[in-house]
Design a binder for these strands. Structure first.
Lengths: 334, 334
DNA sequence: GGTATGCTTGCAACCGGTTGCATTACCAGT
DNA sequence: ACTGGTAATGCAACCGGTTGCAAGCATACC
């Protein structure tokens, strides 16, 4: 079917090694041989089989991406950055969708079979043990958006979710909100737990208490909307800290549909600063998570682990910041 | 590093062939041998190398997905469905991101090197020749969201964009709109061209004319917003047919920011029916494109082409329908 | 001219599986 | 017990590359 190295060698009148070497960077070939080979290859339309090469070199140039949040637009940015960053380095992404997967171990198995060079687990809703299982299998792994596990576990790239919770509490307190609620992401997610913990801590330090805490079933508009409706049917609050912009938009629409005005009757603070947060219909004040930095660093780290095995890579946390738009009233001065 | 077939064979006291056969469906192995092998494999933690298998069988079980629209949330659904559908069949996706790629030929080359079994090109903004180049390279290919090319070209799965344009015109006319405009997707996209052609045709048949046609630079909120602002600064219209929901939302916000009320002052008809179209802040009336059907059919067809080479597969077009929400006034009766 | 030096080049083994073919084992039938 | 037929097994070649090693070669230097 496809043209092989042997045919090119025959046509160019050289050995197979010569052909192989002209296609491997940094190998020793004379200019004369190289041009003969390149000519033959061009005429035959030859392109080397990465499969065969992988088998021989024990490197596939495949980096797995494990995700389970194909509903949330932030992941579009993740996919875009991830694929582009890899492409620039001559690597390719192998996608694993865990959204509807019952058995994650099955996916570990699959990626192992493809002999991926490394894996990036991009999710905060999977337990840390999942990423760990790649490490145990000897596969370089980075857990993006993860929580740093105590005791030298998996390399993590993400943010300090606890600090973000504190930051959120500060932002609401500074604006004079006093009966605040949380509509978090999925309760099981480490990111949710840490953000709530930080938020709760700062509120306690300020001598305030949290009126209500709800958890959206998943990172979606519908889940946020629903959680907010039940919240509002039971409690009265003047501000809400949401675990995600998408959830926040749902929550905002729930409040609006009950006739509440934003930010006069109720304030909203989102999380992520996805593109839609800037849309005029929402103009969401939110905490920006540097997705771009996280993904690029994840790729960088996993590549480093592949290239220099044994040399451990340090986890990295990036800073977040409050992006001010129109869903919170201004900071009260004095 | 990883456990190989040879080691398992040694441990189980059988030949390498025997091990190979217990791991290939439908091969002839006795129950006794099989259990011996499985035991040894389990104890050693063996999992067969798909790389080696690919080399021997000339099948990689890799299906490329070429996309260039990583900004638009519809593609989240595409990725989700695509990866899941493949996974269910024991196949894996290899993603190619053409968003910022200068030279598409480069990507064809890359996918060829990985010896993908087939390719799905999912975009309407690339010229038909692009998908064609896979065909010429002997790689089974399906062009999802494409335009059926005259003269036995690439197999296409999508919708009849022309008919959708007609449908859009009918919807606006039936509601009594008389000075309508189009804010299309990128002008070079075949889908845009066909929809506009259908729209224009029906308007002409009805003896009406189109007040203005604009093209958004890309499928984004910002592009839609911008196009709408320039449109409104020059013309007066009572309804707009948009090439995409995202563009439409941008256009709606542009209109609103000028104090216009929807649907009283101006009506909007979107395209795609993405999840966000149902959000209360927009409640977009739109034309539903059956993304799910398109992706599933694309995978099905490309798999068929892989399994039965030579047997040509027929292109498939799915029906669209108008989804009524709140951005168009009711159909005028009588 | 002889030889040390450093590139090129080809040979052949190897990567980890699959598979056609020949051989052996097994089982049933008489 | 013998035969015939089928199922199971092992051998060895092959998939398409890479790479250590040794031989070949040209150049430079004495």
């Amino acid at each position: 079917m496809a043209v092989t190295l042997k045919e090119v060698a025959a046509k160019a009148g050289v050995s197979r090694s010569a052909v192989s070497r002209t296609f491997t960077a940094g190998a020793s070939v004379s200019a004369k041989t190289r041009s003969k080979v390149e000519k033959a290859a061009r005429e035959l339309g030859y392109s080397p089989s990465l499969i065969a090469r992988s088998l021989a070199t024990n490197r596939t140039k495949l980096i797995g991406l494990v995700a389970n949040n194909f509903q949330n637009p932030v992941f579009l940015e993740v996919f875009d950055l991830y694929t582009r960053t890899l492409q620039e380095r001559g690597l390719r992404p192998l996608l694993v969708n865990l959204s509807h997967e019952t058995d994650p171990a099955h996916s570990v198995q699959m990626l192992k079979q493809y002999r991926v060079d490394g894996v990036v687990v991009a999710t905060s809703t999977l337990p840390p043990e999942f990423a760990r299982s790649f490490m145990d299998a000897g596969v370089p792994v980075v857990h993006a958006f993860g929580r740093i596990a105590p005791g030298a576990g998996v390399t993590v790239v993400g943010i300090d979710n606890r600090a973000c919770g504190v930051m959120a509490a500060d932002a609401l307190l500074a604006r004079g909100y006093r009966s605040v609620a949380v509509v978090g992401g999925p309760e099981g997610a480490t990111s949710t737990q840490d953000r709530v913990a930080g938020f709760r801590q700062r509120m306690a330090e300020a001598g305030e208490h949290i009126t209500d805490i709800r958890y959206a079933a998943n990172y979606s508009y519908g889940a946020g909307r629903e959680a907010m409706h039940t919240l509002l049917s039971e409690k009265t609050v003047d501000a809400v800290f949401c675990g995600d912009d998408l959830i926040c938009m749902g929550a905002m629409d729930a409040a609006r549909s009950r006739g509440m005005l934003i930010p006069d009757d109720i304030g909203f603070l989102g999380f992520n600063d996805m593109a839609m947060a800037g849309w005029e219909a929402y103009a969401l004040s939110t905490i920006r998570q540097p997705t771009r930095d996280i993904i690029m660093a994840s790729v960088e780290l996993v590549v480093a682990m592949v290239e220099r095995p044994g040399e451990p890579q340090r986890s990295r946390l990036f800073d977040c910041s409050v992006v001010e738009r129109k869903t919170l009233r201004p900071v009260s001065v004095g």
